[in-house]
Nucleic acid binder design. Structure first.
Length: 569
RNA sequence: GACUCGGUAGCUCAGCCGGAUAGAGCAACGGCCUUCUAAGCCGUCGGUCAGGCGUUCGAAUCGCCUCCGAGUCGCCA
């Protein structure tokens, strides 16, 4: 609402300046940091400079233009401070308007309706078969899931794709390892653990026996060509891994529209290579087939000298398939920073092939989870299993419940929801591009800027609402909106729709996460100041309206981030 | 070595398409539970925005250089 007013003022002033000076000055209306200065602020420096006029004439010009704006009610006060013109809005009107629009469209379907609904493919999670589901894949999973939710909320169609890492030379390695030192019974008992150990064992042995690498590549090539024994082992490993992953996804409440991994594209590779060949892009280089993708990037390796394919070949096949199958407007790859070059190459390949959609390929990169300041390595067996972290978080959550609320009826279910959500929120609250050091204590922290803080705030509100009956009858004590700490909450709620849009457009769930923390903090601060359930019905009803809005926004926001919403804890 | 990303309070981070006195949480210290859930609230302490130069009325924000950290750099994914 305030956002709309801001846009209106910007448009009005830009037009007025053009009319008076024939100058295209794009006026920016900003929000002053200090609330005492007002709700909106117009700096006039750009006009001074462009029109080469004095500061005071620029101020006078803007002031008179503002008077012509058809804005009878909302702007209550205009004050000039140096080169800034500060506008203060009528808090009663803002509060009433907000509540009205909130009640008219509580799910924001009208406000967030896109001009052009798009189809967005999101490639995320994508764990590597036969390896434990690690913290690294947690990041991709929950960032991708949240971005998908955000786009859906904005009215777009989202296709969620789990591009399983179920193919490639790594399987040559594991199969080699299994044949030479594997044990069927042990794998059946504890598949992921054993398979991961086989993978580590391979790399340990290969240090002294480099010919093993060659052998692994040969096995993969045969797997690719359909060697029945290798295919059987591969299917077995894949199936066992998938079972394990589904367990994790269940805990995280994420699901996908497609689980077509790399292997799915095995029979679609020839098409890609033919296409590259026809366009004369493919060339041979020391036995392998490569494509030059420009002087600023290293060439892309499409086919190994033994004829088998690579990661990028499969990604290329996948994008062709996805364009045909889903007709995406955008395809997002939620994959770590370390693969930046890979996606630059992929994008360039698509551009070189003149397919016309290279601009819609977006690498939504995220920071690495470090251990002792360095990247974790599956090859050396240095991974942290997600399931262990989740278990730890749920246990801590149980402890809190025993300490704070031992009579809670459904302890176990709440403990699970709080613990898992804490881990999810901890990952989403900071900008995704930042690397971070693995720190279990930080991940399962429940105090301060955390998931449980948001849940707790919502629960507190819920507790009050459940003790009161109130009706949305519009009978409001609007004088109450004048109070700073109330008005701050109103302004924060008003900001919710644009926060969702920004969060989606920048592929940054952290924007929403920070917003929710701020809203919760404003509410808790208010909660400490005033009693809600007062005797005066009109006042009470007004407060309950506000609480209802805060709770609705908090719950909706948490849901978008992939957290579990609860009503008591 | 080249390229990419980063360096803001003791720690974890916001702010970065230039705007007014750089903000949160944690930690530390001091308060607040006979009244709506204290997983909370209030207060105190804490800054050469890595360093330098430049552009500008105005720089944490833009440009260049230096230092430091991480990642990547054809037969892994």
């Amino acid at each position: 609402m305030i956002h709309q007013l801001k846009k209106d003022i910007e448009a009005h002033l830009t037009a007025a300046i053009f009319e008076a000076y024939q100058l295209e000055v794009s006026v920016i209306v900003e929000e002053p940091k200090k609330p005492i200065l007002g709700d909106l602020s117009v700096p006039v420096f750009s006009l001074v400079k462009a029109a080469k006029i004095r500061l005071d004439s620029a101020v006078a010009f803007v002031l008179s233009s503002l008077e012509q704006l058809q804005e009878p009610k909302r702007i209550a006060q205009v004050a000039v401070m140096g080169g800034f013109i500060n506008l203060t809005l009528d808090r009663k009107v803002v509060g009433r308007d907000l509540i009205k629009s909130f009640l008219d469209d509580p799910d924001l379907v009208q406000i967030l309706q896109p001009v052009h609904p798009e189809t967005i493919c999101i490639d995320y999670s994508s764990p590597n078969i036969a390896k434990p589901f690690s913290i690294g894949h947690l990041r991709s999973t929950i960032i991708g899931h949240a971005i998908g939710n955000l786009y859906e909320k904005c009215g777009h169609r989202v296709v969620r794709i789990n591009h399983l890492g179920d193919f490639g030379t790594q399987f040559g390695k594991i199969i080699y390892s299994y044949i030479h030192f594997g044990d069927q019974a042990r794998i059946e008992k504890n598949p992921i653990q054993e398979l991961a150990e086989l993978y580590v064992a391979f790399h340990e042995q290969a240090k002294d026996h480099p010919e093993m690498e060659e052998e692994a590549r040969r096995i993969f090539k045969e797997l690719e060509q359909g060697n029945p024994e290798y295919v059987r082992l591969w299917q077995w490993f894949r199936q066992e891994s998938l079972k394990d992953y589904m367990h994790v996804y269940e805990k995280l409440h994420v699901a996908f529209d497609s689980y077509d991994g790399e292997a799915f594209y095995n029979d679609k590779m020839a098409e890609v290579i033919d296409l590259l060949h026809q366009q004369g892009l493919l060339k041979q280089d020391s036995g392998a087939m490569i494509v030059d993708v420009g002087a600023d990037l290293p060439p892309a390796l499409i086919q190994k000298s033994d004829g088998s394919t690579l990661y990028i070949t499969r990604d290329l096949a996948a994008i062709l398939y996805r364009k045909r199958t889903y007709g995406f407007d955008k395809v997002l790859y939620v994959v770590g920073n370390e693969q930046k070059l890979h996606f630059e190459q992929l994008k360039r390949l698509v551009e070189k092939m003149a397919l016309g959609y290279h601009e819609s390929i977006i690498h939504v990169n995220f920071g690495l989870v470090l251990q002792d300041g360095k990247k974790m390595s599956t090859r050396k067996g240095k991974v942290v299993r997600l399931i262990d972290v989740l278990d730890e978080a749920v246990q801590l959550s149980r402890n809190y419940i025993e300490e704070k609320n031992p009579d809670l009826p459904d302890k176990e279910s709440i403990a699970e929801k709080v613990g898992v959500s804490a881990v999810i929120f901890n990952d989403l609250k900071n900008f995704r591009g930042n690397d971070f050091e693995f720190d279990l204590e930080e991940m399962v922290n429940f105090v301060g800027q955390t998931g449980p803080y948001l849940q707790y705030t919502s629960v507190r509100i819920n507790s009050i609402l459940s003790q009161a009956d109130f009706v949305f009858d519009g009978a409001l004590d609007d004088a109450w909106f004048e109070r700073d700490y109330v008005y701050d909450i109103i302004k924060a709620i008003d900001l919710y729709p644009q926060t969702i849009e920004r969060s989606a457009n920048e592929y940054a769930p952290s924007i929403l996460a920070k917003y929710l923390l701020n809203l919760a903090s404003l509410f808790n601060s208010y909660y400490g100041k005033e009693k809600i359930l007062v005797d005066d019905l009109r006042e009470r009803n007004t407060k309950l309206h506000l609480l209802y809005m805060v709770k609705t926004v908090l719950n909706d926001g948490m849901h978008l981030l992939g957290m579990q919403v609860i009503d008591h804890m």
